[in-house]
Every structure is written in structure tokens, then in C-alpha cells.
């Protein structure tokens, strides 16, 4: 199981436990798609455990964001991992997702 949901009043908090890469993009998509149903009002993704993210993973996040806007629920990304922050920086995506990014104190930019 890549992710485990905590359900609370239409707010889903899902920690992503795995890398977001092409290798598990398929299962990740299935999982995420599963949360996109009528009852969902807010989907929170905890990205702290994402040690690696590539274009396929990024693509899924973008897709989910678009889907959220379409279906009218909120997507929140929480606790971005270093890997996630790095590509958000690279592609100036912070503004697009609009979630506060907390840069950890021991942040080291490679």
C-alpha cells in the first residue's frame, strides 16, 4: 500500500509513503484516483516521505490539482520533502499549487 487515508469530515489526509516515480506511477494513480469521489471535500497529501519524484510523479500531482479544480475539492500538499521542493523550485511550481512550503532547518541543497 502506497498510501493510507485518514478520513475525517470529508477531509482526507493521505501520506504518500513511496517514491513518486514512473515505476510506481500506475499504482499511485489508482490510489489517488480512488480519493477523487463526490464525498471528498479536501484532499491532503503528506509528501514528507517522498524521497524521489520524477516527471511521472509530477505529472500526477498536476493532474490531481486539475482534477480537484474540476470537481471542486481542495488539494493541499503538506510537508513537502526535499525532493519535492527541489522540483517545485526548478519549475517555479510553488505558486501554482499555492501550498505553504516549509523548508526544514537542516535543508541542504545539493
Amino acid at each position: 500500500m502506497t498510501a493510507k487515508a485518514n478520513k475525517n469530515d470529508g477531509i482526507l489526509c493521505v501520506p504518500i509513503m513511496d517514491d513518486m516515480t514512473i515505476y510506481n506511477a500506475q499504482s499511485l494513480k489508482e490510489t489517488l484516483l480512488g480519493y477523487c469521489h463526490a464525498g471528498t471535500q479536501e484532499l491532503q497529501l503528506d509528501l514528507s516521505a517522498v524521497a524521489e519524484i520524477d516527471s511521472a510523479g509530477l505529472q500526477l500531482l498536476l493532474l490531481l490539482k486539475a482534477e480537484a479544480q474540476k470537481r471542486g475539492f481542495t488539494l493541499r500538499l503538506l510537508r513537502h520533502s526535499e525532493a519535492v521542493i527541489e522540483i517545485f523550485e526548478l519549475l517555479k511550481l510553488g505558486m501554482y499549487f499555492g501550498d505553504p512550503i516549509v523548508i526544514p532547518a537542516n535543508w541542504k541543497k545539493s
Partner: peptide
Amino acid sequence: VIITMPTLPRIEDMDPEDCY
């Protein structure tokens, strides 16, 4: 950087291994 996904299908049909 502007990212666009012009050919994106519906989320159900989307193949996460495709590049959009």
C-alpha cells in the same frame, strides 16, 4: 516555467506512464 498538458485525457483514462 509554464507547464501545459494540452492532450490530457480524463483522469480515469489517463495512463500515468504516458507523458503529457
